[in-house]
């Protein structure tokens, strides 16, 4: 077994509401190995971004971690002192955010924003950091890198801005890069370029990547393993090929069925999952997916299923569903 880099156990996140705290993330378990790329997939609002933000304690006001551990290189991130936390942020863990337009400071030059992690983590002088920033821009494939350092974010295109964000995340060669839906705000052609860029950089720098997305198809070629999140819990965790070949959870199957695919000469009719995920604070008592699940039985409404290895598949393929096995036999 390869070396663990990040190990999150039983992480819960709450939001403060008028009627008391409501759970958004309910006891998530996930891990990332060294050199591995983990895809985290789920609908918007399922807690995938909050889970990752909580690791660096970047949660918005009124949202806080309610319990659990998040060990990174053997130390619990949630218990670090401010000083230690600062060294991890941008130094050991790089972060790439969703919307590069709002995530870059509009009144600071690109070069200054890229220099920051180098100045604060590597004790570089301003001039050295500026020079290194130019190299970083070249690394992420921005033409005319040195001149671009003097640009402001609004003078770049969306794809260029996201490349800048990635360069900033990579500046200190972190062990882990967390990318939070980095392509959502971009055009489809640019999306593919960004995916390819990260793929190539990962190989060159040997880092681990966590890629958050709602788009299964996008990360199929990028991730080694995929975690499917639903309403703040992991419902399925499997190596990418097993997930696509034998999806265990009805929700995963729903997601897969909604990917447009050309089969033979005819386009298969797309299906969608009916209903909407539960709101925080209105979580059903049993399996959170039960109200939308076509296979739900009485047991599903009573007991929440645990994440367990799926019968007839490898140990690495784990599903949280009472009927994971039966589903398989029915589908076969």
């Amino acid at each position: 077994m390869s070396e663990r880099l990040l190990d999150v156990t039983d992480l819960s996140i709450e939001i403060e509401t008028r009627s008391g705290p409501a759970t958004i993330v309910a006891g998530i378990d996930l891990h990332v190995d060294k050199g591995e790329t983990l895809g985290i997939v789920g609908e918007s609002g399922c807690g995938k971004s909050l889970t990752m933000l909580s690791l660096l304690r970047l949660l918005p006001n009124k949202i806080r971690v309610a319990g659990g551990r998040a060990e990174f290189q053997g130390r619990d991130l949630l218990k670090l002192s401010r000083r230690e936390l600062r060294q991890v942020r941008g130094g050991r863990i790089g972060f790439v955010f969703q919307d590069p337009m709002t995530s870059l400071n509009p009144v600071m030059k690109i070069g200054a924003q890229l220099s920051e992690p180098l100045i604060y983590h590597r004790d570089m002088s301003r001039a050295d950091a500026w020079k290194r920033s130019g190299e970083l821009l070249r690394l992420v494939g921005i033409p005319g890198a040195e001149e671009r350092l003097h640009s402001y974010p609004h003078e770049l295109s969306g794809g260029m801005r996201q490349r800048v964000m990635i360069a900033a995340g990579l500046a200190c060669e972190p062990e882990l890069l967390i990318a939070d839906e980095p392509t959502t705000a971009l055009d489809v052609t640019i999306q593919a370029q960004i995916v390819d860029l990260v793929k190539e950089l990962r190989k060159r720098l040997g880092m681990s990547v966590v890629w958050i997305t709602h788009d299964l198809a996008l990360i199929a070629g990028l991730a080694d393993r995929i975690c499917v999140l639903y309403a703040g819990t992991v419902v399925e965790d499997a190596p990418v090929d097993q997930l696509f070949a034998t999806p265990g959870h009805p929700y995963t199957r729903g997601l897969l069925a909604s990917i447009p695919r050309v089969s033979g000469s005819t386009m298969a009719r797309l299906s969608s999952i009916g209903g909407t995920p539960p709101e925080p604070g209105r979580r059903p008592s049993g399996c959170a997916f039960a109200p939308r699940c076509p296979l739900a039985q009485e047991v599903c409404r009573q007991n929440a299923p645990a994440l367990q290895p799926m019968q007839g598949s490898s140990n690495a393929h784990r599903v949280a569903c009472h009927f994971a096995g039966r589903l398989m036999s029915e589908a076969a």
Partner: peptide
Amino acid sequence: LSEDFVRTARAKGVPELF
């Protein structure tokens, strides 16, 4: 403070004072 770029700065490990 609620802007995304402030979160980015923190994620880069910029000290709070800066």
